[in-house]
Design a protein around this nucleic acid. Structure first.
Length: 271
DNA sequence: CGGGTTACCTGACGGC
DNA sequence: TGCCGTCAGGTAACCC
């Protein structure tokens, strides 16, 4: 489920159900072989630790406690939910001092659970190479994107999905942002103009913000749906709409694999 | 090194 | 109904 907006929505859902001063009473580890073997010390490291703050960085969730930070990536199928019944592929339970039990479920096990010492998480290998947040107006600018585009020779869709250049843009919102910016996904990045980059930077921010806003309205689902608020499917302009009419001009939507990922665009609206 | 491909897993879905 | 191939929103580890 997760690109940046979905992770942000999960973060907000967790904040809602974890009041200030909540402690992790204990952790139940059901299986540790996710994408990477989960450190066996996690239950002991976080036992009786207060959750001070929950943060999102890129597509990662961070649970900051007094001494350590629990690091979580949802991979493709990771979800958090308030435990009601055990389900297949539940991997870890957090028993909280407010009586809640949080369950992390991840059928494909592409997700990550790890930890770092407090204030050291940014040096962790998962974070050291990450680019700017798309909402960082100081760092993620049209100038910056233009410079990056000139130095490389990949399809622009591949470029904006590269987390080294800018974080949070995944396969769905890459197609959606490029539609909004009127740029075809296969266009070579070094052929983008400064103006293209200006539109694209804005389009990425707008598309992600709209999705976050949409996700916000589904947080009430957090309990039953397990944070599985899902993508804001009905608002997709091009993603998964092969051969369907473009909402703007009615031209059938094109589909092709770009950089190994399915990609969608309107050949009339985008150039 | 940049750029492209593959592997990691399970489940859902479409075609036969 | 069931079997099989294909595909899925991420990313690190490989190649060349």
């Amino acid at each position: 489920m997760p690109e940046l907006p979905e992770v942000e929505t999960v973060k907000r859902g967790l904040e809602k159900i974890i009041p200030a001063n909540t402690k992790i009473k204990s952790i139940e580890l059901l299986r540790a072989d996710l994408r990477f073997p989960m450190p066996q010390e996690i239950p002991q490291k976080f036992k009786n630790q207060e959750i001070l703050r929950i943060e999102r960085r890129a597509k990662y969730l961070l649970f900051h406690t007094s001494n350590n930070t629990l690091i979580n990536h949802l991979g493709m199928t990771g979800t958090w939910r308030e435990f009601q019944d055990a389900k297949d592929h539940d991997h870890i339970y957090l028993n909280l001092s407010n009586g809640l039990k949080l369950a992390y479920r991840d059928p494909r096990r592409f997700g990550i659970l790890d930890f770092a010492r407090k204030d050291q998480w940014q040096k962790h290998k998962f974070f050291s190479h990450l680019g700017p947040e798309p909402f960082d107006r100081e760092q993620f600018t049209a100038d910056y994107l233009f410079q990056q585009c000139k130095r490389r020779k990949v399809a622009i869709k591949t470029l904006i999905m590269n987390q080294v250049l800018v974080v949070g843009v995944g396969n769905i919102y890459a197609s959606e942002a490029l539609f909004r910016a009127a740029i075809r996904p296969r266009k070579s990045c070094h052929r983008l103009t400064k103006r293209d980059c200006e539109r694209l930077v804005l389009a990425i921010r707008e598309i992600l913000q709209k999705a976050i806003d949409a996700g916000g309205s589904s947080i009430s689902d957090f309990k039953s749906a397990g944070g599985d608020s899902g993508y804001f499917q009905h608002s997709f302009q091009v993603y998964d709409r092969k051969d369907k009419p473009c909402f703007v001009c009615e031209t059938p939507i094109q589909a092709a694999v770009v950089g190994g990922r399915s990609s969608y665009w309107c050949r009339s609206c985008q150039s």
